[in-house]
Design a protein around this nucleic acid. Structure first.
Lengths: 232, 232
DNA sequence: TAGTGGTCTAGACCACTAA
DNA sequence: TAGTGGTCTAGACCACTAA
């Protein structure tokens, strides 16, 4: 017996062959069918293992072209995007949410662009703070489209965070997500209780449903925040 | 006919039912077998669609417990980790690499910890710069374990970047990856040709093979760098 | 302990694309 | 155009775990 019980075993075996340099970068693997015959399992089991390796960015598969080890592996990592409340509570801290401002306003140029709109649209502009054990954790600057989500005007944002309300009532089918490092401006520094110019991690997220914009939000994490990713 | 040709069609249909709020957050879906019967396809096709939704963090599946819509969707995003040279060339710029320093040195406390070592280990300490069209793009501060990778001493790091050599010659099976925003210190600012205190995005990555440390690297991107992620 | 989802198998047909 | 991988199907058995 070769001890293969599972597609995971097949994947582990192929990974081992890669680590042992039996396959050079850029080189082809045998056909799935041949590997299956060699290991004495079904082709679909090998296929399952190879697809997993392809998802991780380790091999490249092409119909007729076969499977090859990626010459320069550009591996993929997974980010788990948390709900801030659950993230904070998960670390054992008390979560609080504070509404700083709430105002109807047409989208400024930058937000109009982020939401891929041809022109400015009526929005609800919300600024809020998420706190962990009373300390500012995340400053949120959010624009919500009143064309797509007019009901947001009836929500009491002092008790429910806009984020959680949207997540539960407004599913999206398209999302753009980006991170960058920025020096805190006066407004942000004041909100987070830090010095102006302090380096902070900014997250920008915009979401759509059926092509209609839901919200564009820019969050600024308090200094020291680390974003961790998981690599296959 | 219901127009189902593919597991992707099944996934699209289930997604649509979620968007249409036919299933409330936290609520159960019918059993795979029942959905399959309803759609007139095999159970394995529904399984394939549901697994994809589970991978994206949209539904939760449990044996005997069935499939439910996640109450508070913590969705997953994918980061494609590039080779810096390919990233820069992909943007249409000329890539250059400059070795700033190269020195045998025992790992300092911080690196020892990052590499999960019980005590300091002999390392090769390398500082290098990746340039795009002659402009500093990424400053790299790397420690390579000489216990695991003694061959690195024979590599000419002025012509090959340590990153590319390692990627091609030293596969890893474990990787830790994190990002944070930091104010550039004098050394970093000088290397990147920016002002001290400027906010920069720092990436920390450490890799292992069979539990032995390969390398721990801290890269600092030039200001303006955006990290983009893909959401299902 | 009973009822889910997880996986495997063998065979079939198809879509894509290297040659 | 011929040879890969992609997908589907029906049936089987199993692992896990809610009840």
């Amino acid at each position: 017996m070769n001890g293969i019980r599972d597609w995971r075993d097949v994947r582990a075996l192929i990974r081992q062959r890669i680590l042992d340099r039996e396959i050079a970068p850029g080189e082809q693997f045998p056909r799935d069918a041949d590997i299956a015959a060699e290991l004495g399992c079904a082709r679909s089991t090998v296929h399952r293992a190879m697809r997993s390796l392809a998802d991780d960015g380790i091999v490249e598969r092409r119909r007729r072209g076969g499977t090859r080890l990626r010459p320069l592996p550009s591996r993929n990592a997974t980010l788990h995007i948390p709900i801030h409340r659950l993230d904070i509570e998960g670390r054992g801290w008390r979560y609080e949410h504070a509404l700083l401002s709430r105002r109807q306003q047409r989208s400024p140029r930058e937000v109009t662009q982020r939401l891929r709109l041809p022109r400015a649209e009526p929005c609800l502009h919300v600024r809020a703070l998420h706190l962990a054990d009373g300390r500012p954790w995340l400053y949120e600057n959010r624009w919500i489209s009143l064309v797509t989500v007019p009901e947001i005007l009836d929500v009491d944002l002092t008790t429910t965070s806009a984020n959680e309300w949207l997540v539960q009532h407004r599913p999206y089918d398209d999302c753009v997500l980006a991170f960058e490092a920025v020096n805190a401006d006066t407004e942000t520094a004041e909100a987070l209780g830090i010095d102006t110019g302090c380096a902070v991690l900014v997250t920008e997220r915009s979401t759509w449903i059926d092509g209609s914009p839901i919200t564009s939000v820019r969050t600024v994490a308090a200094p020291g925040y680390r974003l961790e990713a998981e690599v296959s």
